[in-house]
């Protein structure tokens, strides 16, 4: 599915919430867009997906039942799939979380900071463990 098809399908469908049959299950309406940086002490809890146009600073927290996408540096605590969805993913332009949780899995980054890459990365559960990989637009 490309962006274009999604755009066309919603555009040709004026009533919100109804999508062509072939897109059902691919389209999720329950997503919030946060248009700022979350600073220390600030948090977001959402039943659905969360997209953040900014950073998640150390001391900030994002908890979502769905996926979490950070269009910036993720340095705080994140929990995707907080209701147990082990298919949830966490994606960030710079993935440097204090702690990262997916479903009931909890991980911390390795102690040595030297390996911090400056490209987007994706965290998800593969074969029962949280894995971090380079994000290259093909998610599943």
């Amino acid at each position: 599915m490309t962006k274009e098809t999604l755009f066309n399908s919603t555009a040709s469908n004026p009533s919100p919430g109804s999508f062509p049959v072939e897109l059902e299950g691919l389209v999720d309406e329950n997503t919030v867009l946060v248009q700022r940086t979350l600073r220390s002490g600030q948090s977001i809890y959402h039943d659905g997906n969360v997209v953040i146009l900014g950073d998640v600073n150390p001391g900030a927290e994002v908890v979502a039942s769905g996926n979490i996408i950070v269009m910036g540096s993720l340095r705080g605590v994140v929990h995707a799939g907080a209701k147990g969805d082990t298919n949830a993913i966490i994606l960030a332009f710079r993935l440097r979380p204090t702690q990262l949780r997916i479903g009931n899995h909890i991980t911390r980054p390795p102690e040595d900071e030297s390996s911090d890459p400056d490209y987007p990365e994706l965290a998800r559960i593969k074969n029962g463990v949280v894995t971090i990989e380079t994000f290259n637009s093909v998610i599943r």
């Binding site: 600073r39 220390s40 002490g41 600030q42 150390p58 001391g59």
Partner: peptide
């Protein structure tokens, strides 16, 4: 710096 960040959030 962590506390400064918290304060900036509260100021905003």
């Amino acid at each position: 710096v962590r506390d400064a960040d918290r304060i900036i959030g509260l100021l905003e």
